[in-house]
């Protein structure tokens, strides 16, 4: 029972981690809380849906997923990144606002994204045309009920996160991004083209969100509200990890996903809080962290 919840916590965490990294990157480099981030995930999911519908399975499968799904995943990532870049260029770039003004503008953008998706696909839920699988036989005796799809989500998320880690630590772009997150003015006078770095931040953040959205659609289903509904959990993850810290966002995303899926254990040990309050627990944790340690668990205490 516990093992099963840990396993499903790991799968859910993977999706939240993909979302929270992008939110944290944008928070530190563009310097505002992006409320459109959840709907960027929705865009990724629906782009994958359309692409997969158009190209089909393309022959073989990996971990129960047709090759075509991975092509669709890349399309979802690309579309989410493209939308973010166009938004940055068209909307945010010309705004002369403080972080609060940008936050409010991002709410407007969130509504625009969601309404476009809803106009195209309706409000009802839908799924990819992929057969859902039975749990992996070998693990069922241990009480773990995960499908190959779940494994694919965790492995793909791990690959993306590792790629990001390599990029941030060892590439020129990564060093510049870290410099800019640390001190934008200093980065600028050092000759870093901060505008360009900002665009790359949007590409990476929104791309990861697009991947998270595509996996969220595979994990449960696609609805126009899917990203918005997850947004607050992602905020909780980012704040728990420490705003601006990518590794904090990973840790925060992991913890929030785990706590969310482990909520049933509370009733087992006699605390009368049911799974319907799983999200509420995360929000309360978020507020407590904001109050007592606003720099998060990975940030430096100030």
């Amino acid at each position: 029972m516990v093992l099963d919840q840990l396993a499903s916590g790991l799968v859910y965490s993977s999706i939240i981690v993909l979302g929270s990294i992008g939110l944290s990157l944008v928070y530190s480099i563009a310097n505002f809380a992006n409320f459109a981030h959840g709907d960027t995930m929705t865009i990724g999911a629906y782009t994958s849906l359309v692409t997969f519908g158009a190209i089909g399975g393309l022959g073989g499968t990996v971990l129960g997923l047709p090759f075509g799904f991975f092509v669709a995943l890349v399309a979802g990532i690309a579309m989410a990144a493209l939308v973010a870049v166009v938004t940055e260029k068209v909307v945010y770039d010309g705004m002369d606002l403080d972080s609060i003004g940008l936050l409010i503008a991002s709410i407007g953008l969130a509504f625009i994204y969601r309404s476009v998706v809803q106009l195209g696909f309706g409000a009802q839920s839908t799924r990819y045309g992929i057969q859902s699988l039975r749990p992996i036989e070998a693990l069922v005796p241990y009480g773990i009920r995960v499908t190959q799809h779940d494994v694919a989500i965790v492995v793909s998320a791990a690959a993306l996160v590792t790629g990001l880690h390599v990029l941030l630590q060892y590439s020129d772009l990564g060093r510049k991004m870290r410099a800019m997150a640390d001190n934008p003015d200093l980065a600028r006078v050092s000759g870093i083209r901060t505008d360009r770095i900002k665009l790359w931040t949007w590409v990476i953040g929104a791309g990861l969100a697009g991947a998270g959205g595509a996996f969220l659609g595979l994990y449960s289903q696609l609805t126009p509200r899917m990203g918005f509904n997850l947004l607050l959990l992602i905020f909780a993850a980012v704040i728990l990890g420490g705003i601006g810290s990518v590794y904090g966002a990973m840790l925060g995303g992991f913890l929030i996903g785990m706590i969310n899926q482990l909520t049933p254990l509370l009733s087992d040990i006699g605390i009368p809080i049911g799974i319907e309050y799983a999200n509420a627990i995360a929000f309360v944790i978020m507020v407590v962290v904001l109050l007592f340690r606003p720099s998060g668990i990975a940030g430096e205490a100030s």
């Binding site: 409010i104 503008a105 407007g108 953008l109 994204y113 309404s115 476009v116 106009l119």
Partner: peptide, 9 residues
């Protein structure tokens, strides 16, 4: 939703 979003932006 679209109208609200466009007005905000």
């Amino acid at each position: 939703l679209l109208a609200i979003g466009v007005i905000i932006v």
